[in-house]
Design a binder for these strands. Sequence first.
RNA 1: GCUGAAGUGGUGGAACUGGUAGACACGCAGGACUUAAAAUCCUGUUCGCCCUAAAGCGAGUGCGGGUUCGAUUCCCGCCUUCAGUACCA
Length: 940
Amino acid sequence: MDYQFKQIEKEWQKFWAQHQTFKAEVDTNKPKYYVLDMFPYPSGAGLHVGHPLGYIASDIFARYKRLKGFNVLHPMGYDSFGLPAEQYAIQTGQHPAKTTETNINRYREQLDNLGFSFDWSKEVRTSSPDYYKWTQWIFMQLFNAWYNKETDRAEHISTLIAKLETIPATEIKAVCDDDVLPLLPSDWSAMSEEEKQSELLKYRLTYLKESTVNWCAALGTVLANDEVKDGFSERGGHPVEQKKMMQWSMRISAYADRLLKGLNDIDWPEPLKEMQRNWIGKSEGAMVSFELEGHSQQVSVFTTRVDTLYGVSFLAIAPEHELVASLTTPAQKAEIDAYILATKKKSELDRMADVKTVSGAFTGSYAINPLSGEKVPVWIADYVLAGYGTGAVMAVPSGDQRDYLFAKHFNLPIVQILDAQICDTEADPTKEGRYVNSGIINGLTYKEAVAKIVAALEEKGMGYAKVNYRMRDAIFGRQRYWGEPVPVYFKNGLPYLIQEEELPLLLPEIDKYLPTESGEPPLGRAKDWKYQDEYEYELSTMPGWAGSSWYWYRYMDANNDAAFADKDKIAYWRDVDLYIGGNEHATGHLLYSRFWNKFLKDMGYVVEEEPFKKLINQGMIQGRSNFVYRVNDIDGKGTNEFVSYGQKSNYSVTPLHVDVNIVNNDTLDIEAFRNFRPEYKDAVFIYEDGSNSLSAEDGRGEAKYICGHEVEKMSKSKFNVVNPDDLVERYGADTLRMYEMFLGPLEQSKPWNTNGIEGVFKFLRKFWKLFHDENFNFQVSDAAPTKAELKALHKIIKKVEEDIERFSFNTSVSSFMIAVNELTDLKCNKKAVLQELVILLSPYAPHITEELWKLLGNRPGTLSFAQFPTFNPVYLVEDEFAYPVSVNGKTKTNLLLPLTMEPSEVEKVVLADEQIQKYLDGKTPKKVIVVKGRIINLVV
RNA sequence: GCUGAAGUGGUGGAACUGGUAGACACGCAGGACUUAAAAUCCUGUUCGCCCUAAAGCGAGUGCGGGUUCGAUUCCCGCCUUCAGUACCA
């Protein structure tokens, strides 16, 4: 029979499911390999053709590793808590769990269509109580932990309590809030239980704190920094404002340095690591305190250029800074108030777009330079961010451009501090030369100056060296319904954990998925939802990233209800060897996951410091839209006439999107177009050849309407969404799998273009034909392969292995085509060759190869665990080589010579060659370069 | 602005350590088969010049330089596109 992909694919998908072919069990006799995909959020739109790209690549790799003798864990699941299901619930009243279930089923169906080798017995769903029980459990561990800088790891809170009982709190090296009390052991023991709890909260790795948050009124929730884009929410594009709220936070900043260092040990794309480095934003500098004239408080600033301290001509503090009110003199009050009001009015977006305008206001107060004793004015300015450093800067106009502009604008002094510094027209941040106008560091170089200034500040108690990070602690709460409940209740305003045995804390049912009338989160609607019928539960839920920050461990032991995963299983599977996903998760998911992983390692629950050893970003698949061109009449109004792409320059036209699914290789399906919309029913066309009737005059076939095209985002409104199911229906999963790989390098973003899928389909048919005679009877021979056949085979063995190892799947598809073309030309139907080829191709096209494997007489289903063919270089050895002969680097001709011939001998033959003499034009070459087995170059 | 990635035929792309640029595929053109079409198969296809043809000549990997016998590949400068980030003190 001809290649019947539909029947073959259904049959094998059923077989794999029934036999649980890909179920992975711990097997200490085999090396493990863990291949993971970033699990999807099951949206209502289903999978489009861009989603499976990474899944196909990882599936090929997983199948390849199985053939190489590895015990492969290759699971899949769903990140099923999230906003869209809840938005839908608000609109329709339908429970998000129900929508989610429907969407998951659809996803599963689509995934099953593609023949992935997932171990579905280990499926996880973050929204299932069996799963979020353990997300809550990890939250509890974080609550019960603090970060000890001495041991450089997280520890149980009990070790902190032990310290507080024995040593002064000031001697405890902890990552904690700034306002921890300087308690003595006696103070601690004198505290009430509640006072103690309140103090411990300042140390816990997850803690409740009043913080400035990104509040999105339209979504009714708080967003993380990475969910805000240019002052608008990433999802939905609603405005976001700064607001103070009590919020759960995760002390990820405790891990800043380890998160930074760990990047050196993992095999991730360099750009991705760079993004994380920038996000963590480590900067080394110093804290400097300035006394304030007439006040008891001080202002401290963070600076990376403590050497410029003598160049400070004013202090600038954020309008939100806590000292603004007390620093403002009566005379300046009106001006300051007006400025603060103006700043608040400006939206985040304006403030960013408006980088060039200098603005600020003088408080009327003065600060004292700790080293020079000089009086400098204190200003407020919106270029100083409340959220970074201390929310105050020491302004050095000679060395910092923003300070420079500010000083120019407000006529403040600009003091040169280095002899090599040129700051007549702009700031000069270089560190060259020796210091001038700089008190104790005059005449010194940069390096000497920094050390001396830090020492002087430390001696006076006015400053110290400090490392600062841009990364803030992560907000860990959403005022939303469809997320994990936080396992916390409140007693006298203080948070307490519920008991571990009481997990999971189930998401309660509510009547509407909206905030309460008093503005509390939706959980405030739950009736009689109280801990021990008495205490209020936490009403916010966990953010989207909670469930995805540890899910790869759950796959190891998905059905365990005694632990998030069994210790022995974690000890076997350890970490993810290969992780494939989009790079939109660079600073969110991937950073939080590394953080939780390090914490779990500190607490002894897992074994590896880093969760994802190797990571690959698959490129985004963009949409490729098609256009028809509607002709406008003289008044510019649209007509019902459409002109083909090549003829459109002769008319005034309006381009209109047309559904890519009724366009084939940019040729419009006229019939389908007429049915696309009622108003097109009687459309008139001007075809590519300029004619306006379907059949050309000479009867040489049909005229064509050619569409224009453009690359855009894949979206419904642009009619460029391509559904994988349609392509599977037409060409089969094996063709789609190979075509997605054939499209180009995995990491590269590219527009989806179905043109060309035929080529891959033809290839598979040609491959099928190798095993069949003209009448499609299965027929292979047991004869011994010829030298040429073995050469073709071993060439592809070598190529495919090398390509898979470097994730170059597109080139191996080409190589398969070449191999099949060669074997077809050789009329090869030798089992010895074809059977090896079946194994080689099986990771790419698993269905057709399973079928042929069976037809070749092997036990069904054993292909997945066959042995990957071994490359033997003997078959590729050549004894002759057609040397390209070039003159001055330009190739002129080829010369067939034995490979054993030595270069000196080659040179002689070349110079004697009649043909080559012609190119030399009678001249004697100055030099002859012979690279054995490569090239001959004559220099004239 | 800063950081990163990338620019190769009509299109997707290949060329892995500097060694025959354009593999493989799409599209297109021509042909075979067919009453016809679809499907299939064969031939050609970087551009320009020359030519009945065979053959030949020249240019060519974003642009301008450099290193080298030889550069898509290495170095310097510039341009364009995409992504991330954005007053970070």
